[in-house]
Amino acid sequence: MPASLIHHGINIMHILSAKIQTLPERIRAGLDLSPAAADWLKVVALLAMLVDHINTLLLPHLQPELYALGRMAFPLFVLIWAHNVLHNPHRLQTRANRMWLWAIGTQPVFSFAFAGHDPWYALNILFVFAVATQLLAWYHRFRIRGLAAGLVLSGLMVWPLSFASYGLSGLVLALSLTMFLHSPPGRLSSVAALLASVALLVTNSQHVTQAPAVVVILSILPTFLLPGAAVGLVRALTDSRERRFMPAMFFYMAYAGHLFILGLMIRL
């Protein structure tokens, strides 16, 4: 083989290696959100969640197109939470307390809407964020002891979260995406990105028991492609200087409110 071809091949390998090494940082830059972009993503995620819940609770037969559309709701909510949760670490316990209050306060409405669909002890999605925020708060304050306590708490909550709120994979997605977005560039952020990708894949395919091709089309592809498309769209349409337009507690009120309305509609 001519020496020039060998040299050319080595150069290509160096270029590919450099691109792979910088890939996590390029992904992280692509996930950076302005306040206005984050609010628009909340709107998209809320609409996707509403479509998913209508499909699950009101329609006589599950519509595959609506199911696929609903797969982007949870990843978008996790991205928004992970993007914001560590901006002021000293307020982590305050954030955790607020998440616990909303999660516990919303649980009766969640049980009302999903009665007969999920067990009475199934927990709503806000508990995922409450547990993850609590783990981060304890780790920030107590380090290794706090991490150990947070992992025990997470282990206790996995089972009731597994019925309707993604269980272990949901918690891993939330925590690993937080690590990826906020840890310094290096091996830790790369491992976190890998964990987040695996957890993202599991969260939205664990309840699909059909043929592998159906799982790919209805779950895996929408899970990865739709949230990415939504992020790219809102970043392109919003200015980085635009302020948020959504009231601070709107998501929590919209979550509880739409569950109550769906619960009423089921019983009419």
Rank of each mutant, 00 (worst) to 15 (best):
W159K: 05
N11Y: 00
L151V: 14
L126Y: 08
A211W: 07
T178Q: 05
S165G: 09
G30P: 09
L161W: 04
R91K: 14
H53G: 07
A103N: 09
P75R: 06
A229D: 01
A132Q: 05
W120V: 08
D39S: 08
R145Q: 12
L101Y: 01
G150A: 01
G167E: 01
S4R: 02
P60M: 05
S197H: 01
W100T: 06
L225D: 12
A254G: 10
V198Q: 00
F180T: 04
L226C: 07
Q134Y: 03
P247E: 11
N55G: 12
F245S: 10
L16N: 02
L41Y: 06
W159I: 14
S154L: 12
E25R: 12
S17W: 02
R28P: 10
R98I: 04
R143S: 10
A248D: 13
M157I: 02
A213T: 14
H140P: 00
A122R: 05
R244M: 02
Y166C: 02
A174K: 02
G232C: 06
P160W: 05
G167F: 06
R71K: 13
L259C: 01
M249S: 13
L218N: 15
P222C: 09
P64D: 10
V216H: 00
I12A: 09
L23Y: 04
S169I: 00
A174F: 00
F180P: 04
L161Y: 02
N84W: 06
S162A: 14
I6Y: 02
A38V: 11
L50Q: 10
E25W: 03
F114V: 03
I6L: 12
L268V: 15
D52E: 15
W120P: 00
S165V: 03
G30E: 01
I10V: 14
H207F: 13
A248H: 15
F260D: 00
G150H: 05
V172W: 01
L50F: 14
Q93W: 11
A254Q: 11
R98Y: 07
